[in-house]
Simulated scan of single mutants.
Amino acid sequence: MKRIVSAIVVAGLAACQAPGPITIPGITRAPQSAEDALDAYYRTLPEEFYPTAPAGLPLPSKDSVLSRVLVGSCHDEEEAGPSDTLQRIAAEDADLFLMIGDNVYGDKDGMSYATNQAELDELRESFADLAARSDFQAVRASHPMMVAWDDHDYGANDAGREFPFRRLAERVHERFWGIENMDVGAWPGTYYARSFGPEGQRTQIIMLDTRFFRSPLTATDEYGVTGKERYIQSSDPNQDMLGNDQWTWLENQLQKPADLRLIVSSIQVLPTDGHGWESWSRLPAEQQRLYSLISETGANGVVFVSGDRHASFLYRSETALPYPAYELTASSLNVSFQDTTDEMDSAQVGEGFSQDNYGAIGIDWAAGSVDLEIKNAAGETVRQTTAQFR
Rank of each mutant, 00 (worst) to 15 (best):
M1V: 14
V5E: 02
S6D: 09
V10H: 13
A15N: 05
C16I: 14
C16S: 13
P25Y: 00
A34W: 11
D36S: 13
A40E: 01
Y42D: 01
R43P: 10
L45Y: 07
P46S: 04
T52N: 00
S61C: 07
D63A: 12
D63S: 12
R68C: 13
R68W: 06
L70W: 07
S73Y: 06
C74E: 02
C74W: 01
H75D: 00
G81N: 07
D84Y: 10
R88Y: 05
I89Q: 01
A94L: 10
F97R: 06
G101C: 09
N103I: 13
G110E: 02
S112H: 12
Y113A: 03
T115Q: 09
D121Y: 14
R124Q: 08
A128L: 06
D129G: 12
A132D: 11
A132C: 06
D135T: 12
D135W: 11
Q137V: 15
R140P: 15
H143M: 05
D150A: 02
H152C: 01
D153V: 01
G160Y: 10
F163D: 00
P164N: 00
E170F: 06
V172W: 10
F176G: 03
I179A: 00
D183K: 12
V184S: 12
A186Y: 09
P188R: 00
T190W: 05
Y192A: 03
Q201D: 04
R202S: 07
T203R: 05
F212V: 08
P216Q: 00
A219H: 12
D221H: 10
D221F: 09
Y223C: 08
Y223I: 14
V225S: 13
E229L: 08
R230A: 05
Y231R: 14
Q233N: 12
P237W: 13
W249A: 11
W249K: 11
Q253A: 10
Q255S: 14
K256P: 08
P257C: 03
D259H: 07
R261M: 11
S266P: 09
S266L: 02
S266E: 01
L270C: 05
P271T: 04
P271N: 02
D273A: 08
A285S: 15
R289F: 02
T297R: 03
V302E: 02
V305G: 02
H310K: 02
E318D: 10
Y323K: 09
P324G: 00
Y326R: 03
V335K: 10
F337Q: 04
Q338M: 11
D339G: 14
M344N: 10
D345C: 04
A347M: 14
G350F: 14
G352A: 14
G352E: 05
F353T: 12
A360N: 09
G368L: 04
I374P: 06
N376Y: 07
G379H: 07
R383T: 08
A387M: 09
Q388M: 15
F389T: 11
